[in-house]
Amino acid sequence: MIKTVISAIAALLCTYSIATAQTRLVSKPIATLDRPWAMAVLPQGGFLVTEKAGRLVHISDAGEVHTIAGAPRVTDYGQVGLHDVALAPDFKASGDVYLTWVDGTDGGALHLGQGRLDLNAMQLVDFRVIWRANSAGGRGHPGAMIAFGPDRHLYLTSGDRQLGSPAQVLDDSRGKILRLKPDGTPATGNPFPSAPEVWTLGHRNPYGLTFDSTGKLWSHEMGPRGGDELNLIAAGENYGWPLVSEGRKYSGLNIPDHDTQPQFTAPLAEWTPIIAPAGMIYYDGAAFPEWQGSLMLGGLASEALIRVEIGETSAREIERWNMGRRIRDLATDAQGQIYVLEDGDEARLLHLSRGQ
């Protein structure tokens, strides 16, 4: 009842301001959703949004919400359910959409699927599984984030599922970033002949994945007790989890830092206390020219929007906005407009604009 009243008040207010020393933002609600996880901006306008319980929805620019039929059946428990949604690089011609999810009927493996979006019928046509993790199980952390590279291959994060050790087992899909062809098969030229889908290993829970304008791949992942990481991803590198971390075990016991074992690739930025990063975009739009060349991160525990300035081999937080809600995902459109997706029940899709 209290949450309903609070949401009603927020809807009446329509907009609210977020202050920072350098930039003032105004946030305008577009639609309200049930535990949304990820979104994609459609080139013709509107959005596709996944909800963790298994619903894929289309949201018009005016905020009308419609269910898209044909999404896969998922298992919604703990940290798993329906996760990312991504458009194929040739979406305007093909209409192809990619989804990630966990299905407990086959042991709880992470899945990747592809289908064609028919907005007239509001359905995914010919949707099918094109990749499945080769090891199932674990209590959480599916990763499940998709990014298409300049090479037009599909990069996919696969979390360690809170198990730790699979991240260092090369032929186990968990704890990896994978490089696949658009049909879900291993891409040619990957660095490990014995594990042909693997691009990098030693990851915990990578919940953000994006390319910058120079073609470099960036990923962030949640640390255990402290030690959230932002990593520059390079083929064949081992990022060390669970053998090294900038955080500690949940019990408080120590984990060696990256600098104690330099054979593992260290993060370029880390956060202790945690921000619990979720969602990430590279920004090069016109709406906020002063942000061009930055990474924009959502924060769950930190309830924040975070701007990170990146260089060739450097990264540092520059600005942080208190959003007052857990932020699950971010997206930008061709005009450089920024959209933010809140986390949880009665979560909102927001449009950010510059305040006065």
Rank of each mutant, 00 (worst) to 15 (best):
Y282A: 06
L154M: 14
Q168L: 01
A69W: 07
A71Y: 08
E270D: 15
R248G: 15
G184V: 09
F47A: 12
S219W: 00
T185W: 02
P191C: 02
A31D: 14
A278K: 01
P193C: 05
G108V: 06
R55Y: 06
L117T: 01
L352Q: 04
V129Y: 02
D118R: 01
D172W: 13
K176M: 03
S27L: 14
P191Q: 04
P206W: 00
A31C: 13
E346V: 08
D61I: 05
N120R: 14
T188R: 08
R128P: 11
L352A: 09
H258F: 12
R128W: 00
Y16D: 14
I281M: 09
D171G: 05
W291C: 05
R328A: 07
L163R: 09
T185E: 11
L180H: 06
H351P: 12
M323L: 14
D61G: 03
D118S: 06
R179L: 06
D103E: 09
P277T: 01
E237C: 11
L295M: 09
E346H: 12
I6R: 13
D257S: 15
Y282G: 04
R348V: 09
S314F: 13
R320Y: 08
E290F: 12
G311Y: 03
R328C: 07
I59P: 04
N238P: 03
V49H: 05
R132C: 11
G138K: 00
N205I: 03
I146R: 03
N190S: 10
Y250R: 07
A19M: 10
L112I: 07
G299W: 02
Y239H: 02
A21N: 14
Y98G: 14
A187M: 05
N231S: 07
R161V: 00
Q162L: 10
A304K: 03
A11F: 11
L297Q: 03
N322Y: 14
E317M: 15
G215M: 03
A11P: 11
D34I: 11
G208T: 06
H83F: 11
I59E: 02
Y16E: 13
S158Y: 00
P150A: 08
A93Y: 10
R225C: 09
D172R: 12
L119V: 10
R204G: 08
I318W: 12
P256E: 01
